[in-house]
């Protein structure tokens, strides 16, 4: 089980957290032509899926209830940084 060093609570078991996917900015809707739709649906359905460190959002639901930005390696699960959502240094 992962150990996540929550910036608010200290090191906690991974099961206290829920994963909510890669960090993706919400696009501003630009209209309804095909390109605008495609952009929105990329936001809905596509995400980077490479093997390596990726920026993700996690939620410490069974703890401080804060959303966190976590950089994690998708093969080793090693976590290189944890910070409050939107405050990544």
């Amino acid at each position: 089980m992962l150990l996540i060093e929550c910036p608010h609570c200290g090191p906690r078991n991974g099961t206290e957290f829920t994963y909510s996917g890669k960090i993706q900015p919400r696009p501003v809707m630009k209209g309804s032509d095909f390109e605008a739709r495609a952009e929105w649906r990329r936001y809905l359905y596509e995400e980077d899926n490479f093997a390596g460190f990726a920026k993700e959002r996690w939620f410490h639901g069974n703890g401080c209830r804060k959303f966190l930005d976590i950089e994690r390696h998708s093969v080793t699960n090693e976590i290189s940084s944890v910070s409050p959502a939107g405050e990544a240094s």
Binding site: T18, R57, F67, A85
Partner: peptide, 13 residues
């Protein structure tokens, strides 16, 4: 509950 927290914390702090 979680969904609203998500919007409040990550999009509209």
């Amino acid at each position: 509950w979680n969904w609203i927290d998500d919007w409040l914390q990550t999009t509209h702090p």
